[in-house]
C-alpha cells in the first residue's frame, strides 16, 4: 500500500539563512501509524510539520529541495486549502490558533471555508465533538475554557475536516501534567478507533514513550533515530546527545542493566517498572 506520508530527501532553508533547517530528510509513514517526533529546540521539528501541511512552501517561502507527499499529493504543488481536507494541524499556543468566540463556530470555520452545506456542517460538528469527547462544550465560549479544553477544541476543529493525518506541534507544551496525559490519550483513541494517522511532536518523553510504537528523533535538521521508544531510550549516548528526557523508571533500569543486575526489557512506565522491580527483589515482593 502507498504510504500516507512520504518525505524524500527533503531539505529546507528559511530565507536569509545559511544553515538548513532540515537536511536530507527521508521519512515514510504508513496509514494508521501513531508516530512520535522529538528532538531539542531548533532541531527542525516545526519546520517538518509545516512542510507536511503545505505551509512550507505555500505560505512560508524559502529554498527547498526534495519532495513531501501526503496521501499522494505533492505538498509543494497542492494549495493549502486542498491539503486541509487531508492533513489537519494543531499548534502549540491554544490561544492563537483559535479564531472564533464559541466552540461550535470554531469547528464550523474550516467546513465553511470548504463550502460544506449547512446541514452537513451541523452533522460534522456533532460527530467531531463526539469523537474528541467534548460534546458538552458545543455552545460554550472559548474564553471560559481551560488550556487543555482549548487544545481539544483545536483538535476537534481539525478532525471536523475528516483528515487522514493529524500533525500536532507540541500541543501540550503549555499544559499541566493532567492536561498533557489527557491530550495524548485522546490522540491514542483517535488513532485506534478512527484509524487517523498521527504525528505528534512532543518533548515530554515520559508521557509519549509508553504510548507510541515509533519515535523519530531530529537533531540539527537531520533524522538521527527512527525506532521504538524502548530502543531509542536504551541508547544512552543518543539520549544524552539530544538532551532527551529519559523517564526516571527507564533511567533506573538502564543503570541496573549497566551494573549487570538486570537483563530484561527497559520499562517505560511505572506499572511495568514495579513489576520488574518485584521480580528483581524476589518473591517476597511479588505482591506488587
Amino acid at each position: 500500500m502507498e504510504p500516507i506520508i512520504k518525505v524524500e530527501n527533503f531539505t529546507f532553508y528559511y530565507p536569509d539563512s545559511q544553515a538548513p533547517a532540515l537536511e536530507g530528510i527521508n521519512l515514510t509513514v504508513r496509514e494508521g501509524e501513531f508516530l512520535g517526533l522529538t528532538g531539542p529546540a531548533g532541531a527542525g521539528k516545526t519546520t517538518l510539520a509545516l512542510a507536511l501541511n503545505g505551509i512550507i512552501p505555500n505560505f512560508q517561502g524559502g529554498r527547498m529541495g526534495g519532495k513531501v507527499m501526503v496521501a499522494g499529493l505533492d505538498t509543494a504543488k497542492t494549495p493549502c486549502a486542498r491539503l486541509a481536507g487531508v492533513i489537519g494541524s494543531v499548534f502549540q499556543d491554544p490561544e492563537a490558533q483559535l479564531v472564533a468566540e464559541v466552540v461550535e463556530d470554531e469547528l464550523a470555520f474550516g467546513l465553511e471555508n470548504l463550502a460544506v452545506s449547512r446541514e452537513e456542517i451541523q452533522r460534522r460538528i456533532g460527530a467531531a465533538l463526539e469523537m474528541v469527547g467534548i460534546a458538552s462544550l458545543r455552545h460554550r465560549s472559548l474564553r471560559e475554557l481551560s488550556g487543555g479544553q482549548k487544545q481539544k477544541v483545536a483538535i476537534a476543529a481539525a478532525v471536523a475536516l475528516r483528515p487522514r493525518v493529524l500533525v500536532l506541534d507540541e500541543p501540550t507544551s503549555e499544559l499541566d501534567p493532567q492536561g498533557t496525559v489527557e491530550i495524548v490519550a485522546l490522540l491514542q483513541r483517535l488513532n485506534r478507533d478512527y484509524g487517523i494517522t498521527i504525528l505528534l511532536i512532543e518533548q515530554k518523553i515520559s508521557v509519549l514513550a509508553p504510548r507510541v510504537p515509533r519515535l523519530v528523533c531530529l537533531n540539527k535538521g537531520r533524522i538521527v533515530a527512527d525506532a521504538s521508544p524502548r530502543q531509542i531510550l536504551a541508547q544512552e549516548k543518543l539520549t544524552t546527545e539530544l538532551g532527551l528526557e529519559v523517564p526516571p523508571v527507564t533511567a533506573l533500569f538502564r543503570m541496573l542493566r549497566r551494573a549487570g543486575v538486570y537483563q530484561g526489557d527497559l520499562p517505560l512506565e511505572v506499572d511495568e517498572g514495579q513489576r520488574e522491580l518485584g521480580r528483581l527483589l524476589g518473591s517476597r515482593a511479588s505482591r506488587a
Binding site: I55, N58, F59, C80, S89, G110, N113, A115
Partner: peptide, 25 residues
Amino acid sequence: QRARTMAISMETRAFGAGPRTSLHT
C-alpha cells in the same frame, strides 16, 4: 507572533479556498 500562528492555523483550515458557506444564517 500570535497573528502569524493564527494565519497559519487558518491556512491549514482552508481559509480563502474560494466561495464559502456559513453555519449561521
